[in-house]
Structure formats: C-alpha cells, structure tokens
Design a binder for these strands. Sequence first.
RNA 1: GGGGGUGUAGCUCAAUUUGGUUAGAGUACCGGACUGUCGAUCCGGUGGUUGCGGGUUCGAGUCCCGUCGCCCUCGCCA
Length: 593
Amino acid sequence: MRSHTCGELHRENQGQRVTLCGWVSSARNHGGILFVDLRDRYGVTQITFDPEAGGTPPEILEQASRLGNEDVIRVQGRVALRAEGQNNPNRCTGEIEVFADQLELLSKSEPSPIDLSEKNETSIETRLRYRYLDLRRPSLLQGLAFRSKFCHALREHLLGQDFIEVETPILTRTTPEGARDYLVPSRIHSNKFYALPQSPQIFKQLLMVGGVDRYFQIARCFRDEDLRADRQPEFTQLDLEMSFVEEEDVLQVVEAAVVHAFKRCLGIDLKTPFPRLRHEEAMERFGNDKPDLRFGLELVDLSALVARTEFKVFTSALEAGGCVKAIPVPEGADLSRKEIQGLEEVAKEYGARGLAWCKLGDEGLSGPVAKFFAGDLQEELIERTGLKPGGLLLFGAGDRTMVLRSLAEVRNALGKKLGLTPEGEFAFAWVTHFPLFEWNEEKQRFEFSHHPFTAPEDWDVDFSKDTEKVASRAYDLVLNGWELGSGSIRIHRQDVQQRIFEFLGMSPEEAQEKFGFLLNAFRYGAPPHGGFAFGIDRIVTLALGLDSIRDVIAFPKTASAACLMTDAPSPADPAQLEELKIRLIPKKEEAQA
RNA sequence: GGGGGUGUAGCUCAAUUUGGUUAGAGUACCGGACUGUCGAUCCGGUGGUUGCGGGUUCGAGUCCCGUCGCCCUCGCCA
C-alpha cells in the first residue's frame, strides 16, 4: 500500500517515485499551491500539491483542498529536493518534499477532541477518554516504542544468561497477606473466587522447587489499592528467581540487566557497581529507604548535642524518647522566609509540628532557634553539621519515625528546589538488609515487612530479642528517590519457616491453610533460592524523564481505577450474575429509595 | 475514608475587590481570498443548559448546600 513511511525519505531519495500513507497533521492552502504535513509513527513528510512546478493535476489539487486534519490519505508522487531557504531543519525529512500527482482519501476524520498540534495541552481527562487519539502524539508513541525496546533488551540479556521465560497463572487463589486482591467469581464453583496475582511470587518459588533454576517473566500484577502517579491497579514487573544463589548473585544479575537495557536503549553507561546501603544506614543518612542519591543534603543526628540546650521543643522530644535531626544546607541562607515556610508545610504534611531553622552568617547564627545555641554549643553545632557561612540548618524533632519521614520529604523538596535533580542523571542504589519484621500499630503486633518467605540474615537468630532490628536478606533497588523493586533470598528450610510463623502467632494449621501448597512443596527438597522483581512502568518512566507511569502505559486508568475510554468497570448483566450465583447489595441511597 | 486543587464553546483558557446588560479570546470547524508554507496569512461565520441538582436574591459563571468527574496527596500499597 505504501513504498515508504513518513519518516524515511531524505536527500538521497531525490527523484524517486513513492507512495505514502498517513494522517493529515496540517494542511496549508495557498490557493494555487497546497502543503500537507503527512504523519505516521515514523515521522512527518511534507506533501506538496503544485500544478506548475510539481505536476499535480488540477483536479487532485482541488481534491486536496478539501482535506481536513486527521484525515487518512494515500498519496503518490515524486521526491524532490527543496529549493534553497525552504528546508525545515526541525524535521529529519525537512530537506525534501513529495510532489503529489495522485491522492486517495482512505478515511475521513471528524474534528479531533484532542489538539494534536500540541499548541495547547489537552486535559488528561479528555486524553484518557480518547486515548486512541492521544496515542498519535509522537511523545506517547515514542514512549511505547521505548518501553518495548527496553523490555526486549531485558529479555535479550536474561535469555543470554540461561534464564527461562515462564508464564504463570492470572487466575489464581487469593493470598492472605499484602495488598487487597482483585477477585474473579467462579461459575463452575459457585461461591468461590479466583484472585488476580499481586505478583507471581509463590509460583516462581515453586518453579525453583521444580528445578527451573533460572526463571523470569515480564508479568502483569494486580493490586486493589488506591492509586498514585506512580501506581496503577495493574502494572508490569520484570520478575525473576534463581536457585543456588546468594544476594550477590541476584544483585549482579539484576544490575547487569539494567545496565544492558540502559546502554541499549539510551546509550548510557551506568556506573557500576550501584552503591549499596544497609537499610538502617539509609534511614539514618537520608530518612527513608529510597534515597535520591543525585544529591547530598544528608541528615545529621543532633540529639546528644541539643539535649544541653534550653529549647523545650528539642528537650521534650528527647524526653519522650524521640530524636532531633537536622539537614545542613550549603548556601541555604539564600532561601527566603517564605521558601522555608514552604518547606515547613512539607514537613507538616508528614506529621511534623514545625520546622525549626537557623542560618550561619559571618557574625554567627541567626534565625528562630539561634539563641538556644550560645558559645561552645554554637561551635559544636557548626562543627558537627559542617555548616559554613551562608548555610542553613533545618531541624526536625519528635518521634523518630516522624522525624525521619518528614525530613526525608523536606530533603527531596530541597533537592528539587535547589536544582539538584537534573534530568538525565540516574542514581541507582541498592538498599539491603531490610528489617524482617515490622510493628503494626493498629493491630498491636509484628508482621512481615517483606513477605513470609524472606530469609533472616542469620538462620539461628532469636526473633524475640530486639525484634525490630532483626535483619532480613531482603533488598530494594532504588532510582532517583523511587522504589523500583524488591527481592530477597527466600527461606528454604522448613524449621526456620515454622519458627517465623510461630513467632508471629500463626498456628501450623493456619500456616497450612494459608500457604499449604508452598509449604508442602518445600517438603520435597527445595533448593536455596532468591529473586527480585522491579516495576517496568516505573523504570521506563524515569528513564524517559516523565512524571507519571500513565505516560508509558497505552491504556491507563484514572485515580479512581476507572477506564474513561471503555467505561470500565461496568454493571454486569443480571443473567451473568445469575449464572455466577451473585446477588448485589444495593447502595445506601438506592436501598432507601 | 480524609485533605488540597479543578470543572465555562470540540480543545486550552478569560470574565472587573464584595452578584448586575447580550459570557469573551486563541485554536479547531465552516465559507471566502491567496503560488513556497511548515504554529501559513487575511476576511467573514457557526459554536455555550458555565459538570449536575437544589437554595438565597429583583438578578447567580460569581454566594450557600448537596452531588459527580478529573488531578495531586495522606492512610493503604509496590
């Protein structure tokens, strides 16, 4: 149907007779001569309808004058070099044009609800409703192409490392821990439900028991939780698992795959090895477990020092068992009161009561808390924080978890504000040795912080002693302050698994009921194994310098998990419900009516 | 479930401190002019239940109450 695409004709094609197909992206009619920008996935080529210089039959020019934006056409003509001064340097096809002598209207378009000229940005709502039009925008199309290439590179690398790509079920059983499941009713087994997988976790471990040795999958995962810019109800992970390995083996494989993909798709040589931080070190230095390592601004603990001040906010925080930390900001004294107030708002969002601060000038400290640091204390503070004249010090005081959390967010806001987060810089990092357990305040008990099969760092550790500090063999991959994914070395020893369940107050019967098929499998010789999974949507978003994973998903859902294009979810037909033996509970207002 | 933002022409936005005539502009679309444009230009035109429902008022895009969609976010989750 076509001899070339709209992105491939150049100077060398001069004089060739070609046939092109595509969408009319703009038509400029000058009366006796008419230009059409013809667009397809590959680019834009200018089609010129010119009876005199171009040999366009007058009736074809007449036909072309009726073309509208987004009409789909097929044209035939001759490639010609443009005259001096008529080149368009913004386009790779800008040195040539095609003089058309034949035109075929393949499909007429109504006016587009989306402004594809990108003169103004159409609202995300309209874009999602008409996603098939939105996709025509080069940036979105290129995003999809990049994603495809990225996945290909990962596949290519892992297949070269003896991994086997295996598909695991989408219809599976509900799992008790973790996120809320999407449920699918069973027709054959009435009153029973499948669940969509939150991840292929258990299946991949069973593949290890099955001797697959090295597995990977680009797997769709489903979680029925509330959405964010970096979270969709269905998302894609590169999931992998390996037998007879330790942390080092897994980390190296993942790292090499990422390095390969970045090289292949962006031409970037990532620095290896990625920095590694133990979990407690990341928390101490950056306040969270997914630090943005593109910049410093590390936290400094000042608890011991400020215990000697008279500042009630600090001393009472310490008396209550909390801590006082600070972020020294070089050159931060340039920030205005208002800007600091903005940072305080950030801190408050995460539970801080306020954000104390002081500045260091040539004549010592100034600002709200300066007066509490006199003489020796002032000198010690300056020494301890490394503050230089022109610097700013931001304090967080109170409950340790809250201080870390709020200062971590203040740090991120500062990084952005001070221009320390340049696009095109990729700061990967591993965070290792996550705690095995986590205190659940609501339920007043310990829970798995990763998942039930994560191995403890020490097989023989006593879980009851310093429970919160018991380290696991779980690790996360972090990029520019985003958590990309996580993994762990798993428990292959029944005795250890049993001890953990026992410690969490789960009876053998309960464990059997919840995870029976996996525990049973482990009775028949389970190889030591471990693995990893990271979010494809997220890594591709970051690689392209975008803000939302929506931009790399063809048909994303809204914040309320709806699809505006298909109008999913939708009511079910009563006959379908009948067949599934499902009766609906009316909403409150309907019940009252 | 909570907080913040937002909703006006197909699209992107405006509409005067504190309510006041016929709700405007750009773009798109339609018609006309135009032989080198590439955000073409020039002239003319169509296009509105101001998200929806109620209320206050002589009068509501504007004020009040409710409700819905979308975005960001807390909780939740990865």
